[in-house]
Design a protein around this nucleic acid. Structure first.
Lengths: 199, 199
DNA sequence: TTGTTTGTTCTCCTGTTGTTCTCTATTCTA
DNA sequence: TAGAATAGAGAACAACAGGAGAACAAACAA
C-alpha cells in the first residue's frame, strides 16, 4: 500500500472526521471549499491517491455521481470484547474488534459480544467457541443467564438465582455444582440475549 | 444493489423521515410538491431508481395514490423457509419471511434459515426454537450436519455419515438411535453453517 | 358512459461534476 | 545546485444527473 504524502494524509483525516462527508458523499466542489482549494484538478490528484491506497471508495462505475465514502469506517456490528470463561476474567481483546450480528440482536440498549470459552454452560446449548450477545445491565432477574463478576476478579457466564442473603450461580454442566456467594461478591455485568455459532 | 445518486439519497431520506408518507401513500403530484419538482416525469425516474435499489415498494398496477413506503422493514437477510424437525417435512412458511443474520453468515452461496423444532440434535447444542442457517447444497461431507430429505417425504436435521452402500443419519440425542438408509433414499438439501438463538 | 386523476413513457435541454491537461511555485533530496 | 517530488491554479471537455413538459393509458369517480 502506497504511502501517503503529507497533504493526502491531511485530507483523509479531514474527510473521515467530517460527519457530513460520511453520510452524503460530497462533490469535488464542496470538498474544495472545505479544504480551501480552488481547483478541482488539484483535488482530483489527491483523491486519486486515496483511492489507490484503498482508503476511499470511488462511487459507482459510471461517471457522474459523487464520490468519497471512505471505506473502513463504515462497519456495523457490536464490539467484540473478548472471551469469557468460568474461572478467569475476560481476556480483553486488544483492538476493538467487531462482530456482525442479526439486526434484531443489535437492539437499542448497548450490547457487546463475547466468545465463550469452556463447557460450563454446555447443557444449555452454549458451547466452547460460541459467541454470546450480551446486553449491558447491572441487574437481572432470576433465571437469566448473566455475565457475573465474582469478587472483582473473575468473570463468568452462569444462570442467576438471587435469594435473600445469597446469590447462586448455576452452571449448566452435569459435572459442575452451583456456586453460592454473598450478594456483595457478585456484580452483574450483562444479560445473555443472543447466541451465534458458526460451523 | 446499485448505488444511489445524491438526489436519490436525498429523496429517500425525505420520504422516510416524513411521517405522513409512511401512513398514507402519497401521489406523485404530492411528492413533486413536497420535493419542489414540477415534473412527474422527473420524479418517476428517481422513484424507479429507489425501487431498483429495493428501498421502495412498487405496488404495481394500482394507481390511486399509491406508492413508496419502503418501510423500515426493508430488511436484508436470508429467507426463512419454515420449521424443520425430525419426522415431518418442512412446514413451508407462506409469506417469504426473512430473518436477519450476521453479515458473515450471509455468504456468497445461497442460504436460507429454518427454525428447529424438536430435540433430536440437543446434544450438539441445537435446541428447539433455534434458527439454523443452511447453505444450499446437494452434497456434503461425512460429519457435516445436513438437512436431509428422506424418501421424498420427511425432512430432518442430522449429522451425516455416508458409507459405501448406506447412509447413516446420526441424531444428537442420547435417547435416539442413528438411522440407516440406502443412499438413494436420502437427498441432501443443505449444510448447516450457522446457528442463532434468542433469549 | 364521461371526465378526471394518476402513473408511466418519451424527448429535449441545461448545469453540474469528474476528469484530463498544462503551467507554475514550493519543498525535498541526492 | 540540479532534479525530482509535491502542491496548487485554471482552462477545457465529455458525460451524465436532474429536470421540464408533452402525450398516453390505466384507474378511479361521477
Amino acid at each position: 500500500m502506497m504511502r501517503l504524502t503529507r497533504r493526502q494524509q491531511e485530507i483523509y483525516d479531514i474527510l473521515r472526521s467530517d460527519a457530513d462527508m460520511m453520510q452524503r458523499p460530497p462533490t469535488y466542489d464542496e470538498l474544495c471549499q472545505r479544504l480551501g482549494l480552488s481547483s478541482r484538478g488539484s483535488l482530483h490528484k489527491h483523491i486519486q491517491a486515496l483511492v489507490m491506497a484503498g482508503l476511499v471508495e470511488p462511487m459507482a462505475g459510471k461517471q457522474r455521481g459523487i464520490r468519497l465514502v471512505s471505506a473502513a469506517q463504515q462497519e456495523q456490528g457490536i464490539p467484540m470484547l473478548g472471551r469469557i470463561a468460568a474461572g478467569r476474567p475476560i481476556e480483553a481483546v486488544e483492538q476493538t474488534e467487531k462482530i456482525s450480528v442479526p439486526d434484531s440482536m443489535a437492539a437499542s440498549k448497548p450490547r457487546y459480544a463475547l466468545q465463550v470459552s469452556g463447557d460450563s454452560m454446555i447443557d444449555e446449548g452454549i458451547f466452547d467457541g460460541d459467541y454470546v450477545v450480551i446486553e449491558q445491565s447491572a441487574a437481572a432477574d432470576n433465571g437469566d443467564i448473566v455475565v457475573a463478576l465474582i469478587d472483582q476478579q473473575e468473570t463468568t457466564l452462569k444462570r442467576l438465582e438471587q435469594q435473600p442473603g445469597k446469590t447462586i450461580l448455576h452452571p449448566a454442566n452435569a459435572s459442575m455444582s452451583p456456586m453460592i456467594y454473598k450478594p456483595d461478591q457478585i456484580q452483574i455485568q450483562g444479560i445473555l440475549r443472543g447466541l451465534i455459532r458458526y460451523y
